[in-house]
Amino acid sequence: MKEQKISGISIAELAETEWKQTLFSLTEGMDPWNIDISELAERYRIYVRSLREFDFEIPGRMVVTCSVLLRIKAEALDIAYKVDRDKLLEEVEGAVGEEDDWEPPIAPEQFMMPVRRRPHRQVSVTDLKRAFVDAITVSRRRSTRLSEQVDDDPFADYELAGENVYERINSLFTRIKEFLSARRILSFFRLLDRGDKAERVERFLEVLHLDTAGLIRCEQEEFFSDILITIPVIKDEELSENDKNRAKAR
């Protein structure tokens, strides 16, 4: 096995050193005023993976190393907040998009050893009621967004061979459900009437759409072999509710 090295020091040697030395080795060659966190994380990842390969247990001092890395990150964030916290939060919110599942980060406090436990308080009935109002607001925004997506769908009136594509797809899905009411798996070839190349391509596209929407599941064991179609159970069906609603809306 090729011996892995970080900053010219072998992993085995690095594993024996003090945590501070480990950190110095990991950051060697970096500008102390401008540490590249991604590079550092990559070096650390290699280091930890190597420890696992040697079947060592990751010792407690590595937890300390992690905490120091986190401190570097926290301080970087703290500096960012001082620049323009509101702007930064706005940017993050915009990037995340789904504000429902996004919580504004809490500004890091002065890092002190030993670290004090931050108590997680219980939630009050007022919090619960407030959360309910928020959930309703988000839910309304979500349904508005979904209905706008349906309205803006550029393929809503798309036709293929004189037929609306969505109607064709819905009709195919109904046909698949009928077939699968009597059996568990359906062969793609059973969906063909004429069997010529043009029909195969058309049907294949429709099947792909249904698979993408989560309404059916396709499996092909080998290239160019038969495609086996099944209907997913419970969760996957629920996941595709939006698609069903969109189909209904049309």
Binding site: D127, A131, F132, A135
Partner: peptide, 18 residues
């Protein structure tokens, strides 16, 4: 204590169920 023992998204789901 800004940290809640039930996160905000989970709490919203719980509120809707309740």
């Amino acid at each position: 204590a800004p940290y809640q023992d039930i996160s905000r998204p989970v709490l919203r789901t719980l509120a809707m169920i309740a």
